[in-house]
Amino acid sequence: MKITSGPSSVLNFLLKDARVLAGALLIFLILAMCVLAPILSDFEPLEISGSSLLEPNRKHPLGTDDVGHDLFSQLLFGARTSALVGISVGVTGVIIALLMGGFAGYRGGAGEQIVMRTVDVFLCVPRFPILVVMAAFLGSSLINVVLFLILFSWPVGTRLVRSKVLSLKNSPLIEAEILFGARGFYIFSRHILPELIPLLIVIFVLDASHAVLAEAGLSFLGLGDLLVVSWGTILHYAFIYPGIFLGQAWLWWALPPGAGISIFVLGLMLISSGLEHGFNPKMGKESKIVEDFSNYV
């Protein structure tokens, strides 16, 4: 039995939405940078390839930093790190939110209480300060940073998924399925999961953008993995350099990575905002991402 409506027509609709297109374009730009990094740059990012503080020229499109690294290749390879962090945290966040939130909402009982109280605890903790403290004490390799970020982004998503699952669970649609003898797994995969997808996309965007910003922030403070080039580390060194604002150096040193971070997050936000409008009930098929309790009252 095919589930007909769904993907193809929705995709068509979405591709016409200006926001989604704009956001997708920006993200595509960033991803292109990541993928084409080795091809586009002539030098290694951590290789001293020229004299310090060169202005942008043919050999170094963005000039060099105070030690002589090529800023263009730093930008491109930095994109990789940021994208990697963002996507890995986003994807893991979604998976955990789906499993934990789905379990809590669907099964309920003691398990739900355990999950939700844990979520409450984590939500009380201020994310960034703890991140800083952990980085300072437990070491700041990239893996650690990613793990810390995952640790602090799963609660938000879990809570959102659980509340949506709860509201769906009590809808007459699910009741009708129960009447026909459908069992837990069937109901969850066929009827609840498809309704969750818009929400999951939003969760991915939220987690990914938070992660990118947090990683950049950590690196900027010097607490990230300084062996790996990321936009945050570029900014870190840029702002350490005392004369950064004296000349024009900031234009090609600090501005590009800052812009890169902004564009990445903006792109993600645009996609999610456009999706929210694309999945609206006027089409009659998809459910709103933001909770709409009036459906179930």
Binding site: P172, L173, E175, A176, I178, L179, F180, G181, H191, E286
Partner: peptide
Amino acid sequence: RPMLQLVFQEPASSLSPR
């Protein structure tokens, strides 16, 4: 279960839109 069925007041809420 299959021997006992119920038809809801609002068809819209008990039918899958997919």
